[in-house]
Amino acid sequence: MVDSSYCRLPVLGLTPFNPHNGQARFFALRLPRPPGTAWESWRPGQFVMLRPDSFGLELPWGRPLCICHVTDCCLTCFFQVRGRGTRRMAHLRPGDMVGLWGPLGNGFAKEEDAPVLLLAGGMGIAPFVGYVNTHPKPWNVSMLFGHREPLESYPVNNINEFVPLDCFWEREPGDLRLFLQALEERMSENARFGGLALACGPLPFLQAVRELGLKLQARVQLSLESVMACGVGACLGCVTPAGQAWPEPGKRGRPVQVCRRGPVFWVDQVEL
């Protein structure tokens, strides 16, 4: 028998961030730790496909959710209300059943002794919660966080206390320039010390990080977000062109699956 990586779980809890600011748009979803040996070696940056029973026949796809944290008893994922599926997920209650498959994808590189600079844009903070909390030497990690919603909308309190966190709140167009300036300074400094930079966030943010990473010839990984139907590499709906440093020469410039070959890519191994 196959130890199936698909399971059905009851929701333990759904916590809105920033509940005082009218309709919460960001949520932490808590589920029991899924069964299976795959969870013993999960990596921050990996994701799960989650499909609540309440989707019925009407919403056929699961939703890819980044894994935030896994403990002996719990799996926590964050999501932002974006469309029909996440809107319905915002109404999940304890005991509601969801289907879940994962952990999926590859996850971020982890180097104990190198300086690690985490670059998060908005909801891109999600995978880093697990990253800083599982890093054996969190004092080597620092984080730069650009966001548009008030800070309390995001799970910043879950970031390890050892990790210095610089936040930039973009309220008007000029703020973005300051953030990009900080991004360049921090990435240059990190590259000088042979550090690793990891980025997750919206596409324009990742494009800026990629450009800087290539210019500085820095070691940078990007976590891409994509619409996904299957999450397992079968449907080919979530592809992105492989970059010039892709390990299989025949695939360079050709589409590769974000779900299966990513969602984390070295900066020179992917085109955006």
Partner: peptide, 21 residues
Amino acid sequence: PRDGNPCPRVLETASGMLNSI
């Protein structure tokens, strides 16, 4: 070999999906 169409090339619709892989 074929590279297929540009993205977006899948979309969830009511009780179904569209694809143009």
